[in-house]
Computed example of a mutant assay.
Amino acid sequence: MIVLREAVEATDLGFILGKKFLVIIAIATIVIMGAAGSFVYGMVSELPNIGDVKSVIKSQTTYIYAADGTVITKLFHENRTIVPLKQISPTLQDAVIAVEDQRFYEHKGVDYIRIIGSLIKDIRSGEFSQGGSTITQQYVKTAYFSPEKTISRKIKEAFLAMKLERNYNKQQILEKYLNSIYFGNGAYGIEAASQSYFGIPASKLNLEQSALLAGIIRSPEGCNPYKYPIEALKRRNLVLDMMVNQKKITAEQARVAKSRPLALQPKAQHY
C-alpha cells in the first residue's frame, strides 16, 4: 500500500509540474506575441504615406545605389521625364520583369520563394547578396526611404511594398518603378534612359535595346555601356536568355538580337 501511495503522489506531482510548465509556456507565448505585435504596430505606424509617383519623386531626395547596396550619391535635380505605361515598349516591360522580378504578377509585394532561394544561395556561397527584392520593394526603397541599412528599415520596406500592392494594381506599380529607377549616365526613369542611350522615346525601344536597358538596372555603373561595353553586352545577352526561358521571346528572336551591336548614340549627344 505504501508503494502504491508513493506512486500516486509521484503521478500527482508530475501532473502539477507539467501543468505549471504549460502555464509558463502559455504566458511566455503571450508575452512574445504581445511584444511582436507591438513591434509590428510600431513599424506600420511609422510607414510613409503612399502618394502619386510624380509628387513622391519631386518631394524626395534620390539616393543612387551601387550593386552592393552602398550609396554612390544623392541628388535633388534629375534628368527624368515621367511617362504612362502605355508609352513604354511592352518588350522593355517584359525584359525588366524577366531579369528583375519574374514572379511579379504572382506575389503580393514580397516574394517569399525568392527570399528563401537567395538565403540558400548566400549560405552556399558564404556571402551576403542584395537579391530577393521584388520590383515593388525596389520602388519603395527608391521612392520612400533613406539608404540606411537596418533590419527595421527592411521590415518597413516589406510592409510598405505590401501596402502598395493593396492600393495599386500591377500595371500602376510597374509604371511607378520604370519612371523612378536609375539607368546610369544621369538618366532617371525609362524615358530619359531611352533618349540618353538611343535618342528615341521609350515607346520605340526594340528587343536588343530593351534587354540592354533592363540589364543596366542591377548595376548602372558596372554595366555602363559607354565605359564597359563588353560587360554591358554580356548582361544584355543574359537578359535575352532569361526572356527565352520565361517564354517572353523565342530562341530565334534572341539569337538575332544577340548578333546586333549595342548601337548607342554618341556620348557627346547624351544628356
Score class of each variant (00 low, 15 high):
Val3Thr: 10
Ala192Arg: 04
Ile82Tyr: 09
Tyr177Gln: 02
Lys258Phe: 04
Ile190Asn: 00
Ile135Trp: 08
Arg153Phe: 03
Phe159Cys: 01
Glu127Tyr: 15
Thr136Pro: 03
Ala7Gln: 13
Ile216Met: 11
Phe145Asp: 05
Lys234Thr: 14
Gly132Arg: 09
Gln60Met: 05
Asn185Ile: 08
Ser118Gln: 09
Val256Leu: 13
Lys108Thr: 06
Ile16Gln: 08
Gln137Ala: 11
Ser129Met: 09
Asn79Gln: 13
Ile230Met: 10
Leu22Asp: 04
Ala193Lys: 06
Lys20Ser: 08
Leu174Pro: 02
Ser259Ala: 11
Leu233Glu: 04
Arg124Gln: 13
Gln138His: 14
Ile115Asn: 06
Lys86Ile: 10
Leu207Gly: 01
Ala232Asn: 12
Lys74Gly: 05
Phe183Ala: 00
Pro201Met: 05
Val244Glu: 05
Ile27Ser: 05
Lys227His: 12
Leu174His: 13
Asn167Pro: 01
Phe145Arg: 13
Ile216Ser: 00
Leu85Thr: 11
Phe159Leu: 14
Gln102Glu: 14
Gln87Tyr: 11
Ile120Gly: 05
Lys154Asn: 02
Glu100Ala: 07
Tyr41Ser: 09
Ile2Asp: 08
Val53Phe: 10
Pro261Gly: 05
Gly69Ser: 10
Ser146Tyr: 05
Asp101Leu: 09
Ile64Leu: 12
Pro84Phe: 12
Leu212Lys: 00
Pro90Cys: 06
Gln130Phe: 03
Pro48Val: 08
Glu148Cys: 03
Ala28Lys: 11
Ile16Ser: 03
Glu46Pro: 00
Glu106Arg: 15
Ala36Met: 08
Ile151Phe: 15
Ile216Cys: 01
Leu264Lys: 05
Ala35Cys: 08
Ile200Asn: 00
Arg235Glu: 05
Ile57His: 00
Ala254Gly: 09
Asp52Met: 05
Ala35Arg: 10
Gln87Glu: 11
Arg153Asn: 04
Thr250Ile: 07
Ile113Ala: 12
Lys156Cys: 01
Pro229Ala: 05
Phe198Asn: 01
Leu75Pro: 02
Arg5Ser: 04
Ser146Thr: 15
Val31Ile: 15
Lys176Arg: 15
Ser210Cys: 05
Gly199Thr: 11
Ser89Val: 01
Thr81Phe: 09
Pro261Gln: 09
Thr91Met: 07
Val96Pro: 00
Gly189Thr: 03
Ala193Asn: 06
Thr136Phe: 04
Lys227Val: 02
Arg236Ile: 07
Asn49Glu: 12
Phe21Asn: 07
Met242Ala: 08
Gly18Asn: 06
Ala10Ile: 07
Glu46Ile: 01
Glu231Met: 08
Val140Ala: 10
Val239Ser: 00
Lys204Arg: 15
Ile135Phe: 07
Tyr65Glu: 07
Tyr271Cys: 02
Tyr197Lys: 02
Arg5Cys: 04
Phe39Tyr: 15
Glu221Ile: 15
Lys258Met: 06
Val56Pro: 01
Gly109Phe: 12
Met162Val: 14
Ala193Ser: 07
Asn179Lys: 06
Tyr105Glu: 10
Ser133Arg: 03
Asp241Ala: 04
Leu22Trp: 12
Gly42Cys: 06
Glu148Pro: 00
